[in-house]
């Protein structure tokens, strides 16, 4: 599971930055990336973020796993745009009687979308690799994300690991009994696995609520209290976003 390989490098300066400031800066740059027409700004943001990831000493395997899916989607979109969008031809060839033509406008549009995806993924990678989940939840709460949503997020995050462990035990038991030997058995076993996970979820929810009510739970979980902002962090972040905005306009 990629979860366990999630690295939070406490030595890096970004890790010490207030999560609320990081979240606001991330969202601001994300908006700039999404609204930028072209590729230069995207490439600059990508280079900056990848450099920070390298400085945070993120293992290559974790890094590649995180980027593998977006890169695959980038390839699909590039192909779709190059061969199906535009009017001015770059090259044309015939394969098995089918005329295949690559278009200049499609290539330009494809590259713009591809750079936008990679830049957006890079920003999120820096944010995630430098912020613990609990701080991220507190920052979301500060951004006025409804408390009910944050609570569900907390329960889900806590119990994903428990349920994965339960799923592993059931999966091993099914596998030892040849539950995955044929295709039919495989699908039947997956159905039973999912059903068993839901049964486990019901059991766990009953147990937690009993335990929490005994400790004074009244339907709402208190969240982390926010520390006051550090002025230097806010000013530097503001200057950074302004500089990025200036580059975005160019």
């Amino acid at each position: 599971m990629i979860f366990s390989k999630y690295i939070h490098n406490e030595e890096h300066w970004l890790s010490r930055l207030d999560a609320r400031v990081k979240l606001v800066v991330t969202l601001a740059i994300l908006v700039m990336v999404l609204s930028y027409k072209g590729s230069a700004f995207h490439l600059f943001v990508t280079a900056l973020c990848l450099f920070q990831c390298w400085r945070m000493k993120i293992p290559w395997r974790v890094f590649l796993l995180r980027f593998s899916e977006p890169v695959f989607i980038v390839l699909v979109i590039l192909l779709l745009k190059i061969f199906f969008s535009g009017g001015e031809s770059i090259f044309s060839t015939e394969i098995m009687g089918i005329q295949i033509t690559a278009y200049r406008e499609g290539l330009a549009e494809g590259l713009s979308i591809a750079s936008r995806i990679i830049a957006a993924i890079s920003i999120m990678a820096v944010m995630v690799f430098s912020t613990p989940f609990t701080e991220l939840l507190a920052a979301l709460s500060w951004l006025r994300v409804p408390q009910g949503f944050i609570e569900i997020l907390m329960y889900a995050y806590r119990y994903i690991f428990v349920l994965i462990e339960d799923a592993g035990v059931i999966y091993d038991a099914q596998k030892n009994r040849l539950g995955y030997a044929t295709l039919n058995r495989r699908f039947s076993s997956i159905g039973i696995l999912v059903g068993s996970l839901i049964l486990k979820a019901f059991e766990h929810s009953q147990n937690i609520s009993v335990a929490m009510v005994q400790r004074g739970y009244d339907g709402q979980i208190p969240l982390l209290k926010q520390k006051p902002f550090r002025l230097a962090e806010v000013v530097i972040s503001f200057l950074f976003v302004t500089m990025m905005g200036f580059l975005w306009q160019i």
């Binding site: 609570e151 569900i152 997020l153 907390m154 329960y155 889900a156 119990y159 996970l197 929810s205 339907g219």
Partner: peptide
């Protein structure tokens, strides 16, 4: 039902 929020969280995990 006080157990409903934990249940929703666990369903999200599922």
């Amino acid at each position: 039902d006080l157990s409903f929020k934990p249940l929703a969280g666990l369903m999200a995990a599922v």
